[in-house]
Amino acid sequence: MKVVAYAALVLLVIPVQITLLDRISIAGIRPDLALVVVCLIGLYGSEVEAVLAGLALGFAQDLFSGGALWGNLCLKPILGLLAGLASRNLVNLTWAFVLALMLGLSLLSGTVMYLLKSFTGPGANFFLAARGIILPQACYDAVLGLAALKLIRLWKPHRSALTALTYE
């Protein structure tokens, strides 16, 4: 059942990202829905689930991107793993933690993507990229992640025991 749910999620997230997210872009910056989903799976599911979902989502994202076919494929599972590890021994999943985690992981993702792009193509000024893409996208991802968390809590108020070992 879980496999089917994850497969449906993967099939749904990237089309939404490609077609609909342009409508909610702010100054041309769109949130990375795949990153938010992978991090939430890491927070609410297990690290393994987050890694697998990250692989699938990252690969699907690369398929429809103008860039190389391996950037997100490598990056998204790592982000899912980090999110899973960060929340494993956490007692309370507070909004501040989620906000900080999403912000941090998105900043990390943006920086790595910048480095990959500079490595494979014409280089650009890091500060321009940070101001124009990395920071705004990180803020957007964090806010979107927090909103998604609020929605998830309406449906599933407690995390699985595997993720939150001492969660009450």
Partner: peptide, 10 residues
Amino acid sequence: VGRDPSNWYR
């Protein structure tokens, strides 16, 4: 039908 899924490529 869609745009790049990331902000890094146009």
